[in-house]
Design a protein around this nucleic acid. Structure first.
Lengths: 193, 193
DNA sequence: ACCTGAACACCGTTCAAGT
DNA sequence: ACCTGAACACCGTTCAAGT
């Protein structure tokens, strides 16, 4: 493992355990057994280090999404599993999820980061397309439909993380809301008013 | 205008013009014509000041949403206008939008903030209900359906702010995506596979 | 090429005074 | 009650050296 990889891992671990504010270059250097200044020999800035954490995290997510897509389960179940992948990620590593999907600074880094993020999204898009072909999602450009479904899950997870879901007032949790969405989108839905 | 209000306004202005990192207590004090330390006589911490900014912002949003709901336009148009309200807000004041809808710290402040946020959401929920009664949105608990539609818009706006919308790849912008969603949800949609 | 240690400018927060 | 100014601990970043 290179020193750069060690620094990324230390930063990711601090992020998961203490939130973004815990990822100081001093703490990262210390956790990697180096001085507070060593990260600058591998990354141009704190933001660049966080972008590197985001890039490897997107890579992991893409790999997990790919495993779901290439499994032998029916399309509708792949969709549920893909959604569960993001739901679990958000709940188990909220600060990391926020870095990946809720951080204009990091996203603006572009380059490799953007490519990794697109890989992840492409897996999801392909699953949506399979669902369309199987007749469990309606006809529409798969890219647009996938964006919409992903954005819904993302918006719900963000509201949940922010404590803006008011679960006391009904069935408004992420899982139930996504089931409601997929049910309403289903071509088989009875369409009378 | 009380000193506290002056400080809130200064903080909001700095937030809009320079992003969250520009809201330092020193800059807020200076903008209000006071010392860097004066904010502490009115707010317990920087987070408390930001929470106060969020509270007055939610109040403004609730007022704007209420004006839309109580207008004489048809429900479907009210819905479009309500969505446009949030879309414009996100685009014109991204840092403020982020503070309101994308910030676990501030949301955790609870109390008055939470009440203001609920007021805003309640206006939206009532518009959704009107749309259901007019037959342009499907039968479902209005709270759950409103959460879902709002979360979709919110997720799309977040992706847009993060540069994760890939508009080069199709019609995946916020407006078109929301139209797609509302069209697919419409009870009048042709439902064949 | 990679690393360290001192230093700088900045920030949130605290404290001792002032009125 | 409200405000100021000095001070503290912390942080990102830079710089001058070391190997």
């Amino acid at each position: 493992m290179t020193t750069g990889e060690k620094l990324i891992e230390a930063a990711a671990s601090l992020l998961d355990s203490g939130g973004e504010s815990a990822v100081t270059l001093r703490a990262v250097g210390l956790a990697a057994g180096l001085s507070h200044n060593a990260p600058y020999k591998h990354f141009a800035s704190r933001n660049a280090l966080l972008a590197a954490v985001a890039a490897v995290s997107f890579e992991e997510l893409a790999k997990a999404a790919n495993a779901i897509r290439t499994s032998s389960r029916p399309p509708a179940q792949k969709m549920s599993e893909a959604i569960a992948l993001f739901v679990d990620y958000s709940r188990q590593r909220p600060a990391r999820y926020r870095l990946l999907f809720n951080n204009p600074e990091t996203a603006a880094a572009g380059g490799e980061l953007k490519a990794r993020a697109m890989e992840t999204f492409e897996e999801f898009r392909a699953i949506v397309q399979e669902c369309q072909e199987a007749g469990v999602l309606p006809d529409a450009p798969s890219q647009a439909l996938a964006s919409l479904i992903f954005a819904s899950a993302h918006g719900l997870l963000t509201m949940e993380a922010n404590g803006q879901m008011h679960p006391e007032k009904g069935l408004s949790n992420v899982g139930a809301s996504m089931e409601l969405l997929l049910g309403l989108l289903s071509p088989g839905r009875t369409s009378g008013k």
